[in-house]
């Protein structure tokens, strides 16, 4: 895969290697990308929910 590279602590990389293999991922990269995608999606969902809630409060539909 071509694109930005991220430096990881060697110890962390070894732990990721162990866990990703146990979880059935073909490569550590695949595992890390999956984790990051999930983390980003969760953060975006939380942000969207907060903004929707704020909008509804402004409109007087929720307290």
């Amino acid at each position: 895969m071509f694109g930005p590279k991220i430096k990881l602590d060697a110890d962390l990389y070894e732990r990721l290697k162990t866990v990703s293999a146990a979880a059935g991922y073909a490569t550590v990269d695949e595992f890390i990308v999956h984790l990051l995608e999930k983390a980003v999606a969760d953060a975006e969902d939380a942000e969207s929910e907060a903004e929707v809630r704020k909008r509804l409060q402004g409109l007087g539909y929720i307290e």
Partner: peptide, 22 residues
């Protein structure tokens, strides 16, 4: 929101994305 005197919030395109996701 304008009639209520409330702040408009994020840019409409950004708000649209929030609603879509929600």
């Amino acid at each position: 929101l304008q009639r209520l005197g409330e702040p408009p919030g994020p840019d409409p395109a950004v708000m649209r994305r929030h609603f879509e996701r929600f």
